[in-house]
């Protein structure tokens, strides 16, 4: 099953309430995916700085920060539950190499404005553990998982991020991900887990690195990705949704002058401001819808 949600704020006056909106959306989708949950928050870009979202399997944050600050100059570490947000000027290529020497840490995402958090457990607990309500930002994407083809672990949780400021959540399953994983890995895209969605995220990263737009990449995906899916994909500029041609995985969009919200079911957005007067529609199969700057 799985629940997916996304919200893009057109009106900045709501930025401070982004976390609160997403919390309500994820809580109501907990019934669709009680195994694990995750979310990506996009806030304003920090020029020349990178934020690395890292999951840690120890609670010795101070020691980790100490060790890292010896290897990386100008570092700021913020810890929330079992995640660390590490802020530094160091570029991804170099920093990711350093991270590889820390077995206790695994990178879940990075970029100039994205922060990603994911954890095993009921979504209602997960959003509490990360204090999602307090987050602000311009757009956010979330996922509640009912595990099917891979294990219930943080590695198997969404959102998946395989490129700078990118993320993907998925409701459905892909059938040709093993083949695709091999061909993407040959092209140098790093895919860590055996999960099908991470392959789709890698596919999008590959398209974007070929200078294609998100919309073009998702349209190509309709030919190359075999299976059932509703995808919500985020970049630093906005978000997009696409459903496969059969469209058996649900999605509903509510758009007002202030925001665009996407969810698996309408009940996930019933708490949003003025939603009853929003333009509400179901994305058509095989069509890409995108919003952003």
């Amino acid at each position: 099953m799985c629940g997916i949600v996304g919200i893009y704020l057109k009106n900045k006056k709501y930025n401070s309430q982004l976390g609160k909106f997403l919390t309500g959306m994820m809580n109501s989708m907990a019934t669709r995916g009680p195994d694990s949950a995750g979310f990506a928050i996009y806030s304003s870009e920090k020029k020349k700085k990178y934020k690395y979202s890292v999951c840690s399997n120890t609670d010795q944050v101070k020691e980790i920060s100490k060790k890292l600050s010896k290897q990386v100059k100008d570092i700021k570490v913020k810890s929330i539950s079992d995640h660390l947000i590490i802020e530094t000027v160091m570029k991804p290529k170099k920093f990711i190499e350093i991270l590889k020497n820390h077995d206790e840490l695994s990178l879940v995402g990075y970029g100039s404005c994205i922060e990603i958090f994911k954890q095993v457990g009921n979504p209602k607990d997960v959003v509490k553990n990360f204090s999602l309500e307090k987050f602000s930002g311009s757009h956010a994407i979330g996922h509640t998982r009912m595990a099917t083809e891979s294990a219930i672990t943080t590695d198997g949780s969404h959102p998946y991020s395989t490129g700078e400021d990118e993320c993907l959540v998925h409701n459905g399953s892909l059938s040709n991900h093993n083949n695709l994983r091999r061909s993407l890995q040959k092209k140098g895209i790093e895919i860590k887990s055996m999960n099908d969605t991470e392959v789709a995220a890698g596919y999008i990263s590959n398209g974007l690195s070929d200078k294609k737009s998100l919309k073009e990449t998702l349209l190509d995906g309709l030919k190359d990705l075999d299976g059932f899916y509703t995808f919500i994909s985020g970049t630093k500029n906005g978000m997009a949704i696409v459903r496969d041609e059969i469209a058996c995985k649900p999605a509903v969009v509510a758009e007002t002058k202030d925001y665009v919200a996407i969810a698996s079911e309408f009940q996930a957005m019933a708490h949003l401001p003025n939603v009853n007067s929003a333009k509400i529609f179901e994305p058509e199969p095989g069509k890409v819808y995108s919003w952003g700057k």
């Binding site: 079911e265 309408f266 009940q267 996930a268 957005m269 019933a270 708490h271 009853n276 509400i280």
Partner: peptide, 25 residues
């Protein structure tokens, strides 16, 4: 109704019910 599922499921009498808002499955 706020998108709740199964609202007015299994009614069997000659009554009139108006649901004011969006419903779920």
């Amino acid at each position: 109704p706020d998108g709740n599922h199964a609202i007015c499921a299994g009614l069997k009498d000659e009554i009139e019910v108006t649901i004011d808002g969006h419903t779920g499955y």
